[in-house]
C-alpha cells in the first residue's frame, strides 16, 4: 500500500506541474508543411506521464521533449512512419493513441464490425422468423385485416 501511495506521489508530482498549455512558440517549425506533420504526429502520440492526453495537448516536460524530438527528426527528413517507429522503439506501443492492427488488437479493430454483423444477422433472422410465423397462420390479406380489426394491437391469433 505504502508503495502505491509513493508511486502515486511520483506520478502526481509530474502531472501536477502541468496545467495544459501544450505547444510553445519556440518549438514551432519554420516550414508550415513540416509543422503540420509534426502536429498531426504528436496528436497520435500519447503522453506517457499524463492520463489520456496526446503529447500535443500536454505541457509535461517529457511531452515537450518528445514534441521537440519529433520535429528534429522531421527536419532530418524522417518519414512519419520512421518517427512513430522511433518513439515506439523507446516507449512501446502504449504511446500510440491509434493502436496498430496486430495480434493484440485484432479483437479491438474487428470488434465493431463483428458486433454490427452479428446485429444485422440477428435482425434478418428475427424478421424472417416473424414473417414465417405470420404466413403460416394467415394469408397476407387476412393478416392485414386482422391487424386492422385488432386496432393494430398485435397478431396474437397468428402466433403458434
Amino acid at each position: 500500500m505504502k508503495r502505491l501511495v509513493l508511486l502515486g506521489f511520483v506520478i502526481a508530482a509530474v502531472i501536477a506541474a502541468s496545467p495544459v498549455k501544450a505547444v510553445e512558440p519556440n518549438e514551432i517549425l519554420e516550414d508550415p508543411k513540416l509543422e503540420q506533420r509534426a502536429r498531426a504526429l504528436s496528436k497520435d502520440l500519447r503522453c506517457v506521464v499524463c492520463q489520456n492526453q496526446s503529447i500535443d495537448d500536454s505541457n509535461a516536460s517529457l511531452a515537450r521533449d518528445l514534441r521537440v524530438v519529433v520535429r528534429e527528426r522531421l527536419q532530418a527528413g524522417d518519414t512519419d512512419k520512421q518517427i512513430i517507429d522511433f518513439v515506439v522503439a523507446r516507449y512501446g506501443e502504449f504511446v500510440l493513441l491509434n493502436p496498430r492492427v496486430n495480434a493484440r488488437t485484432y479483437l479491438l479493430w474487428g470488434g465493431p464490425a463483428l458486433v454490427l454483423i452479428f446485429g444485422i444477422l440477428g435482425l434478418v433472422f428475427w424478421f424472417r422468423r416473424r414473417g414465417k410465423i405470420a404466413n403460416d397462420g394467415l394469408s397476407p390479406e387476412e393478416e392485414k385485416r386482422l391487424a386492422e380489426l385488432l386496432g393494430q394491437t398485435g397478431t396474437e391469433g397468428s402466433d403458434k
Binding site: 496526446s54 504511446v95 493502436p99 479491438l108 465493431p112
Partner: peptide, 16 residues
C-alpha cells in the same frame, strides 16, 4: 497479460 495498449480518439473516430 497482453501488455499495455492505448485506445485514443483515432479509434473512436474511425469506428464510432
Amino acid at each position: 497479460g497482453g501488455g499495455k495498449v492505448s485506445v485514443g480518439p483515432p479509434f473512436f473516430n474511425t469506428t464510432f
